[in-house]
Amino acid sequence: MIFYPLGKYILLLKAVFRKPEKWNIYRKEIFHEMNSIGVGSVWIISIISVFLGMVTTVQTAFQLVSDLIPKSTIGMIVRDSTILELSPTISALVLAGKVGSSVASQIGTMRVTEQIDALEIMGINSPGYLILPKIIAAVVTIPMLVIISIGLSIWGGYLAGTISGAVTANDFIAGTIDGFRGFTLTVSMVKAVVFAFIITSVSAYQGFYTSGGALDVGISSTRAVVVSCIMILFADYLVAQLLL
């Protein structure tokens, strides 16, 4: 049951990575997609990241009731949970909704309106032309979004901690610096790249094999988000298990 779609997905990826007809046209498409996927998602990622950091600080402070644990621990927990889990994973889940549904509906609409057939008749490798620029754009821009998310999330945590009085500014900053391991950032970036690939390739797969009409485009779009989210969480576990 799972092998048929898996096989189709692998064959689609094989076609995606076939040699492009003309690199300069693909390059133009990649920049266009970087703008759409990356720049177009900066605001939503910024807003959720700030709140994510604020909530993490407040809830960590609520749980640290013992006087034996220094308050700087709050900063440490916010930093590590943000870098390792919250920023890459929550950002990816949000982007699965925003970018994934857009990719699936865009390609699905092209399929049902015969635009993909038109590309193929011209002799163009349609999976390559439509999907490769999206994958490259996502793999480049989503890690950048995750870096922005990490910075804003920690800043949000600092803000919530100092405003509520749960932790002093000095304690929070000391906590974020103390015992920092650069490897956590590497893990975070690996996750971001893997999630970016999943979001674009899974959504493009759902869109590319749409058949029928407008209703089916909607179904593909919904399925793209659901499957991407499940795959992101599965990959999250896999990367954590392998790297940590």
């Binding site: 609409t109 309106t113 015969e114 635009q115 057939d117 038109a118 193929e120 008749i121 011209m122 002799g123």
Partner: peptide, 18 residues
């Protein structure tokens, strides 16, 4: 691909790129 370059096609829905 060589033959496809020699083919033109008009689709029922026109299939113009939106």
């Amino acid at each position: 691909i060589d033959i496809r370059k020699e083919i033109g096609m008009l689709f029922q829905s026109s299939a113009l790129f939106d």
